[in-house]
Design a protein around this nucleic acid. Structure first.
Length: 1043
RNA sequence: GCCCGGGUGGUGGAAUGGUAGACACGAGGGACUUAAAAUCCCUUGGCCAUAACGGCCGUGCAGGUUCGAGUCCUGUUCCGGGCACCA
């Protein structure tokens, strides 16, 4: 029977659907297993072959776990709010919901094509009101809670209000804004409703605050750092400035320590954990207040992790945005400082951090007073200090910090050594903590630990500073000035935010006329007409919050919705939550390391605190799939210069070198007017040009006439048209040479307008001869352009091709991101229709380990394809009948099968899918050559193949006479006894170099092995009389003789 | 710049500190065929050598630890990812 993947796959996909094979119940006696793929954003470009990599791996794992007897939850859904749909809406006016819906359909179709075991009845979409109702609900819970440091968890804000009324806030230990004032119960109770609400915002886990953003006034919107280059919007070129803006924020800093500790209990890659640790950036140090000369009422607070270096502080640097800059700047310095502030405002954080070699800054004219030694040190502003980090001010210690050192050197500021162990500080900073302090007042002679302790105590006693733990982590900005996101369920009354009543959720996205900001610079929701909220029991209506939530809102809790996707009364029922608990294996890209993966952990800790999640960490195990990159192909289009070089190198030079006696001058080498080519012994000149340049041709003709030269015009197009037949051009020149006529030009219109040169031929010409162009990889096979298919593309309209002798037009290639604009996108649908979904799935796995990124290259897929055919062929005889033997297997067959069982089982468990495919191939290679295969060997193989090639396995499973789905078969049991061999082959090394092999019976003692090895000829030969110092036998492994 | 990850044949890759290159692709040779495709068989890291046996080198680069290093340590270089409003 012919292996016909498209028929088989269609048939079984339908059967699975009809039989609800992948529907998962929350009610099962089996142990649960929850395997989740990261939420995809359904982009308009559809899936490319890189996307399914993780889904295939997780699908294999899900199917495997099911075969091992688990009740497996393996859902899929969409993070369907997002910027691209909104951009598209701005351009076209099409509502993002409409274009998103289309994209989703396309995604679904493509996913279905690959045969995933997703339970689609549980699909969720963040942009569905029934979903974002619960995103809004969770937001409200955050608003209604604060973080209590005493019990180390979130508590209701109502508790806090009760405490304030009873005892004020000075005994409350809660995470709050830095500028929260102390107040007593009397003071609290005397406050107005509005004043109380304002104070509570300083405690709430989500709250509006001012934060810096990249504001683009021309577009009335905020941009991400990566959209800003050199102070302008990368695409539109409009100027961008850093601006303080009122935005909703999430008090993630409250959870900094718990997010850090939680990392120890989850099995995620070290790299991701390290990135998260870094992002949180916990550092222990001290905050120190510096006085300001002439401003007795003000001071500058700095945070330092090296308070021990304080005597080496020779200047202070503020971020250009620092609130005191304006006040401190002296009139003499004002112009310079303001200019610098303006310039710095145009730079993104990334630019500011990365260009550390270029020192820039400005002196404010003011001086700070070092509290330790009363030293008067100048205050600068510089953009290497970021406003959002710490206090936006640093004490600069040039002898110990390289950036400070560079700054000091540039501005000729003093560099004072502070430790006797510092070396070469004239050359560079030395951040050592070794040695004894010098030039350091009260800590002179001390070592690091003691100095730090003494200084911290000294500062605390005088209330000038204190030991402090600082986090790099900032509260997460939660507002977006966009349309296509969840509305924030808040209304504003008397400039105070209040929650929309729970019964009025969801706050649905209103209709707007355009997806742009309003004329007054408000977010798009400001365009909605009559969009106001009337709270229950009130008659007045109020304005809704106009910003929307960011992409990470909906994706921070979606894993719970899959457990109970249609619940209208809760985001997830208690029963479902207690059955599924958390994600067992989470699969997705490492690019989400700190965005999604940190924020979702934060929300989960919060949900855990308020009793809605049952595990502190929602994902126990994380697998990072690598990015599949594109492999772009390029073709080379000839420019005018090519034709001149071609004529010289290929036509004139070789021809006249042999044919003489005429000599030809190389292009542009003639005297006077620069004809392209002129002959020394003939009055003919040659002009190479495009036939479109009538003016030029006419000019050259007139010049030639007055010079008494005869002119041959060769069009680029004409040369291109006969590029592969040299003789034609040679003949034309020959004829012109021998003729008496004065002007030669073809009067046939050219059929060819552009010439492409095969990549292997381009080396002979200068690089300026060509324009390198992306060519669609789908018309290229093995870097050889398929000319028939290529000619159908618009880019090859009226093109001809310069071919090498073998007639294969070659392209160059590069690895780039897979993207439409680079014409290197490979659609999984094409792979599936050509090779079948099973082959595609196996090939994606076969490419290499899932974690490693690599360029997509189709050329190896034939190996997998022929393996599947061979495997299929083992079941059937020549006339297509199932034909298997029922005989008992041989020892060799059993060993091959059980080796495969062992390897595949181990490798799936460690997510090494590529080697699994190899093991199937090895089993296939071992069994092939036999006329008749044995059922007892092949049936377990079918089950093992089922996770990888589900359609093929399902067909074979039924062919073998089984009625149910192969998905519900039992994974084959390994019997170690079949793996044992009678003899062991010991490689023998002498001083670590392999010299031969010795075969001994299994179970031979080390002493006997030694005896057997020492009588071998090759051992004697290589020992060459040297004495054996040591004889090492690693049982079952290797022998090493040390001489 | 900072943080993280990675460099193994022509290519994708394999290898609990124990025979480097499994399994494939590609390439070369052969069988079948009128021919092509498909299929099957053999060879295939480099260099040297041969009638044959064989020898030397080799996991980005430079050191180190070890009986033994692709694997562990130190330094270095190149490439990829992240850096807070792309998702």
């Amino acid at each position: 029977m012919e292996y016909n993947p498209s028929d088989i796959e269609k048939k079984w996909r339908q059967w699975w659907q009809d039989n609800h094979t992948y529907q998962v119940s929350n009610d099962s006696s089996k142990p649960k297993f929850y395997i989740l793929d990261m939420f995809p954003y359904p982009s308009g470009a559809g899936l490319h072959v890189g996307h399914p990599l993780g889904y295939i791996a997780s699908d294999i794992l899900a199917r495997y776990k099911r075969l091992r007897g688990f009740n497996v939850l393996h859902p899929m859904g969409y993070d369907s709010f997002g910027l691209p749909a909104e951009q598209y809406a701005i351009q076209t006016g099409i509502h993002p919901a409409v274009s998103t819906e289309q994209n989703l359909d396309r995604y679904r179709e493509q996913l279905d094509n690959i045969g995933f075991s997703f339970d689609w009845s549980r699909e969720v979409r963040t942009s569905d009101a029934s979903y974002y109702k619960w995103t809004q609900w969770i937001f409200q819970q955050l608003f209604q809670h604060y973080y209590d440091k005493e019990v180390d968890k979130a508590l209701p804000i109502a508790d806090l209000v009760a405490r304030f009324a009873k005892e004020g806030n000075n005994r409350v230990k809660a995470v709050c804004d830095e500028d929260t004032p102390e107040f007593s119960a009397e003071q609290w109770n005397a406050l107005s409703e509005k004043e109380q609400q304002m104070l509570l915002l300083k405690y709430r886990l989500t709250f509006p605050e001012e934060s810096y953003v990249n504001w683009c006034p021309a577009m009335g919107t905020v941009l991400s750092n990566d959209e800003v280059k050199d102070g302008v919007w990368e695409r539109g070129g409009y100027p961008v400035e850093r601006k303080l803006m009122k935005q909703w924020s999430m008090r993630i800093t409250a959870y900094a320590d718990r997010l850090l500790e939680g990392l120890d209990e989850i099995d995620w890659s070290d790299s991701i954990k390290e990135q998260q640790r870094n992002w949180i950036g916990r550092s222990q140090g001290a905050s120190v207040r510096f006085g300001i000369d002439g401003h007795a009422d003000k001071n500058i607070e700095v945070f330092t992790t090296r308070v021990d270096t304080i005597f080496g502080a020779t200047f202070m640097v503020l971020a250009p945005e620092h609130e005191l800059v304006d006040l401190l700047t002296t009139d003499a310095q004002r112009q310079e400082v303001e200019g610098y502030v303006k310039w710095a405002a145009s730079r993104s954080d990334i630019e500011r951090m990365s260009e550390t070699k270029k020192v820039s800054g400005a002196f404010t004219g003011a001086f700070a007073i070092n509290p330790l030694n009363e030293a008067r040190i100048p205050i600068y502003i510089a953009d290497y200090v970021l406003a959002g980090y710490g206090t936006g001010a640093v004490m600069a210690v040039p002898s110990g910090d390289q950036r400070d050192w560079s700054f000091a050197t540039h501005f000729k500021l003093p560099i004072i050594p502070i430790l006797d162990a510092q070396q070469n500080i004239a050359e560079a900073a030395d951040p050592t903590k070794e040695g004894h302090y010098i030039n350091s007042g009260l800590i002179n002679g001390m070592r690091y630990e003691q100095a730090t302790l003494s200084l911290t105590r000294w500062l605390e006693e005088r209330r000038l500073g204190k030991g402090k733990i600082q986090y790099k982590l900032r509260n997460a900005v939660f507002s977006r000035q966009r349309y296509w996101g969840e509305p924030v369920p808040v209304y504003w009354k008397d400039e105070t935010p209040y929650l929309v009543a729970e019964k009025d959720l969801p706050v649905e996205l209103p209709v707007v006329d355009k997806y742009l900001p309003t004329e007054t610079g408000e977010p798009p929701l400001g365009r909605a007409e009559n969009w106001r909220y009337t709270p229950p029991g009130e008659s007045a209506s109020y304005e809704y919050e106009l910003s929307t939530m960011p992409g990470w809102a909906g994706s921070s809790w979606y894993f719970y919705r899959y457990m109970d996707p249609h619940n209208e009364h809760a985001f997830c029922s208690k029963e479902s939550m207690h059955y599924w608990k958390s994600v067992d294996v989470y699969c997705g890209g490492s690019e989400h390391a700190v965005g999604h993966l940190l924020y979702s952990r934060f929300w989960n800790h919060f949900l855990f605190d308020i009793g809605l999640a049952v595990e502190k960490e929602y994902a126990k195990k994380l697998i990072n799939q690598g990015m599949i990159q594109g492999r772009s192909n390029f073709v080379f289009r000839a420019k005018e210069q090519f034709f001149e070089e071609y004529l010289w190198i290929k036509v004139l030079q070789p021809f006249f070198a042999t044919e003489g006696p005429l000599k030809v001058a190389e292009a542009n080498h003639t005297e006077g007017y620069t004809y392209d080519f002129a002959f020394e012994t003939n009055d003919l000149v040659i002009e190479v040009t495009s036939w479109k340049q009538y003016d030029k041709i006419e000019r050259v003709r007139q010049t030639a006439e007055s010079d008494g030269k005869r002119l041959l015009v060769l069009f680029n197009e004409e040369l291109g048209g006969c590029i592969n037949s040299l003789e034609q051009t040679v003949g034309k020149i020959k004829a012109a040479l021998n003729s008496r006529e004065g002007f030669f030009i073809t009067d046939e219109p050219p059929v060819c307008e552009q010439l492409f040169v095969s990549y292997d031929l381009t080396g002979k010409y200068s690089p300026e001869c060509f324009t390198k162009l992306h060519v669609d990889v789908n018309v290229v096979d093995g870097d050889v352009l398929d000319l028939n298919r290529a000619l159908a593309l618009p880019m090859f309209d009226k093109a001809s091709f310069k071919l090498p002798p073998d007639g294969k037009f070659s392209c160059s290639w590069e690895v780039e991101k897979m993207s439409k604009s680079k014409y290197n996108v490979v659609n999984p649908d094409d792979m599936v229709s050509q090779y079948g979904a099973d082959c595609f799935r196996m090939y994606e796995m076969f490419l290499g380990p899932i974690e490693v990124g690599k360029p997509w290259d189709t050329k190896g897929i034939t190996g997998v394809s022929s393996f599947l055919r061979r495997f299929w062929g083992m079941f059937f005889n020549a006339s297509g009948q199932l034909d298997l033997s029922n005989e008992a297997p041989t020892k060799d067959e059993l060993r091959a099968l059980h080796t495969c069982i062992k390897k595949v089982t181990e490798d799936i468990e460690r997510y090494s899918m590529n080697t699994c495919v190899s093991h199937f191939m090895i089993l296939g290679n071992e069994l092939k050559g036999q006329k008749l295969q044995k059922r007892v060997v092949l049936e377990p193989a079918v089950i093992m193949m089922a996770p990888f090639a589900p359609h093929t396995a399902e067909e074979l499973w039924h062919q073998l006479g089984n009625a149910g789905s192969v998905c519900d078969a039992a994974w084959p049991e390994l019997n170690e006894a079949y793996l044992k061999t009678d003899t062991i082959n010991y490689p023998v090394q002498i001083n670590g170099k392999l010299r031969g092999n010795v075969e001994v019976a299994a179970g031979t003692s080390n002493a006997d092995v030694e005896a057997m090895v020492m009588v071998q000829d090759f051992v004697h030969k290589n020992l060459d009389g040297q004495t054996v110092k040591k004889f090492i036998v690693v049982p079952g492994r290797i022998v090493n003789i040390v001489v």
